[in-house]
Design a protein around this nucleic acid. Sequence first.
DNA 1: CTGTATCCCGGAAGATACTG
DNA 2: CAGTATCTTCCGGGATACAG
Lengths: 124, 124
Amino acid sequence: MKDAHSPACRTISSLLQRVGDKWTVLVVMSLGDGTKRFSELRREIPSVSQRMLTLTLRNLERDGLVSRTVTPTIPPRVDYELTEMGRSLREPVGSLADWALKHVDTIDRARERFDAEQDEAKAA
Amino acid sequence: MKDAHSPACRTISSLLQRVGDKWTVLVVMSLGDGTKRFSELRREIPSVSQRMLTLTLRNLERDGLVSRTVTPTIPPRVDYELTEMGRSLREPVGSLADWALKHVDTIDRARERFDAEQDEAKAA
DNA sequence: CTGTATCCCGGAAGATACTG
DNA sequence: CAGTATCTTCCGGGATACAG
């Protein structure tokens, strides 16, 4: 990873932007347990709007990370499930999650310290 | 990670949004090699604007991931370096990078296939 | 129940010019 | 060289209403 603007780094960066969007990780984690219906996902992630849940799932489906199964009953039923590739994503995301949990306190303190320094600099 | 809207998941999600922003990973990777000056970073990441590089570095500094050293000569010289915590971030990011490189082709094909299906659905 | 279609707003980020 | 300031543009995402 010597070359920060190499195709490889761009690839990684664009993937991180996808995974790092507002809802993707929450949906992937929620689907980690197994198949879920649309309405179940909404219940488990109360803060997501209908629109954004749909868009997030569509993008995941487009990338081959989630499969979508429609049962054309009335009312209709749609089940979402991680694909094999989707499940494999949980491992590296888990590594990052572990890192986050381990360092979140340190980061919070660093931020407070930085902001405090900014304030006293402004006061001067 | 049963509960998708638990504080832990929110923490992870917010970290991913930070790491997943447009420039952070490129800067962290570029600093992986060692200390770099502002102008060196600009050269290595040609697509970043001066403004966004400054903002990205400030955020990383605020989080305690990057240290900033000013040498008040004329012209001034500023060196950036990953902190210990910043270096530790490279490992989980590397895992995600490996995943990305391994699956990028599959994802690209999945997208093409999905988009093609969308088109033919629209044609009907 | 599972979407799609619109409208709208705030923040992210580019371009440009200026400063110590 | 290493920023800051300002203006503007663009897009993610929320709210709402409607549809199959």
